[in-house]
Computed example of a mutant assay.
Amino acid sequence: MEFRILGSVQICDDQTGMRVMPSGAKQRALLGALVVCVGQEVPSGRLVEELWGDRPPLGAANALQAHVARLRRLLLSSSGRGAHHDWLVTQPTGYALRADTSATDAQRFHRLVSEGREAATVDPDRSVRLLRSALGLWRGRAFEGSERGPICATEASILEEARMVALELLYDASLRAGQHERITGELEGLTVSHPLREQFHELLMIAQYRCGRRAEALGTYERLHRRLIRDLGVEPGPSLRRCRDAILYHFDPHPGREAVVGPSHGSAAPHPPALGHRPDDEVRMRLLAHEIALLRGRVEELYQEHRALAVRLSGSRALSLPPP
């Protein structure tokens, strides 16, 4: 039997395929809290707080026992093992869900993400499949439809951040696999729903650049830049700035990921730097060369302005001035 919390709290019998969702938000919250602490005793006081917060009813202990009794019957009726396995056991000071820690969709999600992370550099196509399978386990917000007390609320926050990291790993692996055209639209949606998460914007910039949409990639950076300044009063992080600089000067934003399409004019992307040279150093050298060229151009402009002014002042001839 598998216990599911990546969405509404459910019980799924792996023998019959039957899915059962406890009736009532408190029943779902009780099961959710026990699933989070599967195999461990959860003190009755913590479960009372989980179900009623800091305003428990009179006779909260009896009310909790009644909820536990109903949940125990539901577990027994939902399991193909019948009465031969007591899923919800009474402990000296609380209750415990007696199940393997791997019998939850959350643990299955973590396992697939770990396998996808390990495969990212050696087999990005397999990494993409594993990570999409992991993210496919989500049916909505964790513990959706439950009254979430401290146990479930904390776990929901941890799981949501793990989901965000899995999405970042997925799109990084997709870029390594050359799937930039497929993921651009998905990343655009994520930057809208998570407007301050820099990694999504960086991945989108790389995908747009690989699709030949260099101007849009730079526009993505500028929108985030303005948003960060306005909402948080901070500049984009160094990784995002390096990505912007690389795109600005037609240099592949992340040579470690496969580059298929280059700048917006359609030419091939620059080759990754030779071994022994860091990509960041190559970008800095291009930036320095560009700044020197700008400086030389400005000096030349000033020299020409000075000559023109000298001609006007003399009224007849230009002063002899040494070249810059």
Rank of each mutant, 00 (worst) to 15 (best):
D245P: 00
D252L: 03
Q65G: 15
L175E: 02
P195L: 02
T101C: 05
P124I: 10
R278F: 04
V261W: 14
H250L: 07
G315K: 09
E168S: 10
D252Q: 12
H67A: 05
L203F: 03
R108M: 08
E115P: 01
V68G: 08
E161D: 11
L76A: 08
P253N: 04
F200A: 02
S23Y: 12
A25T: 15
L88W: 12
L6K: 06
R72F: 02
P195C: 04
T104W: 10
C37L: 13
T191H: 01
H277M: 08
V68C: 11
F109L: 02
E291F: 04
V38Q: 15
P150G: 09
L130P: 11
G140V: 06
L167T: 03
L175M: 06
G39M: 06
R148Y: 07
R242P: 01
T121N: 14
Q179S: 10
Q91A: 13
I151E: 13
E202P: 02
R286L: 11
I229K: 03
H271Y: 11
E161L: 06
I229T: 01
A177G: 13
V89D: 13
G80F: 08
A162E: 07
E222H: 08
V36M: 08
A69L: 14
R4K: 14
S264I: 02
S78G: 12
R223P: 01
G297T: 04
I229R: 04
S23G: 14
H225W: 03
T191Q: 01
T93Q: 15
A142T: 11
R296S: 00
D252V: 09
V9K: 12
V283C: 04
C12F: 11
R257H: 06
E186F: 06
R46E: 15
L287H: 06
G262C: 09
D123W: 08
G276F: 04
L75S: 08
R278D: 15
A215C: 05
L112Q: 15
A66T: 15
R129P: 09
Y221I: 00
G7L: 09
S133N: 15
Q27C: 09
G237T: 05
F3R: 11
I11L: 14
R73I: 03
E291W: 03
A308T: 09
Q208F: 00
G262H: 10
R197Q: 05
L31C: 09
W87Q: 02
E147R: 15
A61C: 07
L295E: 04
S102N: 11
G185W: 13
A134F: 06
R72S: 13
V9I: 12
L74F: 05
D105A: 04
E305K: 04
G59L: 07
R214A: 03
A162W: 01
R241A: 00
P92M: 12
P22G: 12
D231H: 04
A162F: 01
R223D: 01
R111M: 09
